[in-house]
Amino acid sequence: MHSVENKSDERMLWTRFLKGDNQVLSLIYLQYSNALFDYGCRFTVDRDLVKDCIQEVFCTLIRTRKNLSETDNVRLYLLKSLKRRIIRDLKSASGKPRLLNDQDYSFDLLLSDSLDDQLNELDEEKRQLLSSAMLSLTDRQKEAIYLRFNRGLEYEEISFLLSLNYQSSRALIHRAIEKLREVIHVQQKKINQILFSILCCDTKYAFQHKK
């Protein structure tokens, strides 16, 4: 979901943390742990790996506090360092770390079927739409879209996470949205066609009866 974090609160927490207030870190942790976890789970299904990486991110944060500055964007810093760690771990687990570069990863926008996921009919339709849309997007596009809509990041922040410049990340998202629109159009046409054919049958049927 779009996360609406209060910017001045965030600033205040960060400043206090930099000044050595350790208690405030627990608040930072609470505020971001689930967003980080969700982002991490998009790269891998291995929840434990994601949790280990989150642990590392926060421990590094405590260790390197002196090198951080007040102008740092907390959320972005956390997301970026989590991503770096996860990709590093995934690469070394793959057994051929040298062959893969840092852009080689998959990104999952669809949620795995959790047990308590009770989808009603409307959601089912949405899911089908979504899955056909997903096939047409690249992993980078998915990540950009995710950061934009689910995490509510701005373009500058997205470019930083994707190591792109502002213009390219914007273009990336625009292309992705255009693709999604196409999919929606196609799906709607299909739905309309079905509706149309049902209507036709009905009228035919009606006519037969009149005779």
């Binding site: 742990s33 689930n34 976890f37 989150i54 739409l129 979504l130 995710y146």
Partner: peptide, 19 residues
């Protein structure tokens, strides 16, 4: 709204343990 689906969440105990 295609994307405002449910998110992966840490269970409360997981969140505590990790902390």
């Amino acid at each position: 709204h295609l994307f405002s689906s449910r998110e992966n969440k840490l269970a409360l105990t997981e969140q505590y343990d990790l902390w």
